[in-house]
Design a protein around this nucleic acid. Structure first.
Length: 506
RNA sequence: GGCGCAUUGGUGUAGUUGGUUAACACGCUGCCCUCUCAAGGCAGAGAUCACGGGUUCGAGUCCCGUAUGCGCUACCA
């Protein structure tokens, strides 16, 4: 049977990186097996679902390059089907109406409430499964319903026995029926609940493999019971290890902020392929141990069997701008930036430059070759796309900032630079042709004659020309920037020398 | 409270049927290269494989227990 998998997020916020990883694995499995990858938006919680969130999910998938097959399924559109299925189960005696008035619950304290209730039950010897309505006669149940009395619908879990299923990742699983309460399928207001909706939709969509987070592992037993009650065949399950915060706690937006949101990576200059590559390595590793791979290699190498069971820690340091996200992710992004074909990098840099008003129309045609050379030169030490408009700004505009530390290190430390640099500019102006090689010859000769180390002039030039203390080989920079701009920048802007003099006057 | 899952250097992982000095990547340290910073090359630090028992000639690998973390347990998803 052809593989059909799905990614089924609920649109209640940004796209979480854990969810993005689930989407990736589903997509990879579909690609690997020649199956279909479907998208279902689980928007049954009307209060919390937003269109904006749905948008961010779709955008996020597109950014990662995970195209879905067929139409998006919106779960809320299927509510009627879910209800009908629940009523059918009541008719068949597999579910029952529970006329117990709905208990108010406070979302913030549910977990505590569950534990308290369980403690109380065991202390009093109460079996919560003894619902008085479970064995109500069909006639009486029908009558009360017809009279308009509100009711929830619960699935009848058999009294004795256990459920089984085999998880592709976690292996054989079993659970005593006694551990499972008769779960509510339909709220008393007729609203279908998660477990019901998921199962019906998965059946409806012909899902063959359910690949999702490990947080659903225990609940899978309930779903298996539902498949059986509905007379449907049970799909294969593969649960994915969770992604944890550095303190091994849950990775949540409330506590950890934007690092958990996929769009953050897009907005902060990640190359989609790099982040996708990084995500693939969270909870999975290829058989050959390779870590950097193309999409094709990834698809080819991927297998559910190599997913492992222990949770992965997503390592980052809050409050440290240098390590705002996992260092390996940052390294991988840099690796992609400096090794991918420049032509592939170009459109991403273009977007970045555009956003910062640094893009010029000439880059499209006349200066395209020049641009590609610049990109190839400067990308070698960049970590994100943002660097092209940040550290790299001087290559695209005459209006760039000077790094204070660079000025101190390369300009202010040597008084003579104030005269040497303009003098060097004069020499460079005479250099013809003006290339990296000729510029080097000029500079070294000038340094010799002036009796200073070439390094002094090189570093000083670097800061004058780019505003930075670090960067590519200086002679390449001279050539790239061209004779005119090189000379101008060496002569111009001497506010720091003035500041130095002011200091000297005191 | 109950049930479930997990536990290999700081992090991500390899270690598929138990068998020599526990492997790789990121990060870290030093050196080389060098006009700076990266990259690259070389060298190195860092793991009594959570802990305690057991099975075995031999266990990271199997069994039991403990601890810790996480998940589920809801008329949330």
């Amino acid at each position: 049977m052809a593989v059909r998998v799905r990614f089924a997020p609920s649109p209640t916020g940004y796209l979480h990186i854990g969810a993005a990883r689930s989407a990736l694995f589903n997509w990879l499995y579909a690609q690997k097996t020649g199956g279909k990858f479907l998208l279902r938006i689980e928007d049954t919680d009307l209060q919390r679902s937003t269109e904006e969130s749905t948008r961010s999910i779709i955008d996020g998938l597109a950014w990662l390059g995970l195209a879905y097959d067929e139409e998006i399924v919106f779960q809320s559109a299927n509510a009627e089907k879910h209800r009908a299925a629940a009523y059918k189960l009541v008719e068949e005696g597999k579910a029952y109406r529970d006329f117990t008035p709905k208990a108010a619950r406070d979302d913030a304290t549910v977990k505590q409430g569950i534990a308290d209730r369980a403690r109380a039950h065991s202390a009093e010897g109460v079996d919560p499964r003894n619902n008085p309505y479970r064995d109500l006669s069909k006639e009486e149940s029908d009558q009360r319903a017809a009279a308009g009395e509100p009711f929830a619908v619960r699935l009848k879990i058999p009294r004795a026995g256990k459920t089984h299923f085999s998880d592709i990742v976690y292996g054989p699983q079993e659970r005593e029926y006694s551990e499972i309460e008769d779960l509510v399928l339909l709220r008393s207001d007729g609203h279908p609940l998660y477990n019901l909706s998921v199962v019906i939709d998965d059946i409806e969509m012909g899902i063959t493999h359910v690949i999702r987070g490990q947080d659903h592992l225990t609940n899978t037993h309930k779903q298996v019971l539902l498949y059986e009650a509905l007379g449907a065949s049970v799909p294969q399950f593969a649960h994915l290890p969770l992604i944890l915060a550095p303190n091994k706690g849950k990775l949540s937006k409330r506590k950890h902020g934007e690092v958990v949101s996929l769009t953050t990576y897009r907005d902060r200059g990640f190359v989609p392929a790099a982040f996708r590559n990084f995500l693939a390595l969270l909870g999975w590793a290829p058989a050959d141990g390779k870590e950097i791979f193309s999409l094709a290699e990834l698809v080819q190498q991927f297998s559910l069997e190599h997913i492992h069971r222990s949770p992965a820690v997503f390592n980052f340091q809050e409050n440290d701008p240098r390590h705002w996200t996992d260092e390996k992710a940052l390294w991988m992004n840099a690796e992609y930036i400096r090794t991918m074909p420049v032509a592939d990098l170009l459109p991403m840099v273009k977007a970045e430059l555009r956003a910062n008003k640094l893009w010029r129309e000439e880059y499209e045609e006349d200066d395209r070759e020049w641009l590609l050379k610049v990109l190839d030169l400067i990308r070698q030490r960049f970590f994100t796309l943002k660097d092209f408009s940040g550290q790299g700004r001087a290559y695209f505009s005459d209006d760039f900032d000077f790094d204070e530390a660079a000025i101190n290190k390369n300009l202010r430390k040597e008084l003579r630079l104030k005269e040497l640099l303009p003098a060097l500019a004069d020499q460079l102006e005479e250099t013809d042709p003006f290339t990296a090689i000729s510029a080097e010859a000029t500079l070294r000769k000038f340094a010799d004659e002036a009796g200073v180390k070439a390094g002094l002039l090189i570093n000083g030039s670097r800061t004058m020309l780019t505003g930075q203390a670090v960067g590519p080989s200086m002679f390449e920079v001279f050539e790239i920037l061209g004779q005119q701009r090189s000379v101008e920048r060496l002569r111009s802007g001497v506010p720091w020398f003035d500041a130095m003099n002011a200091l000297g006057d005191v």
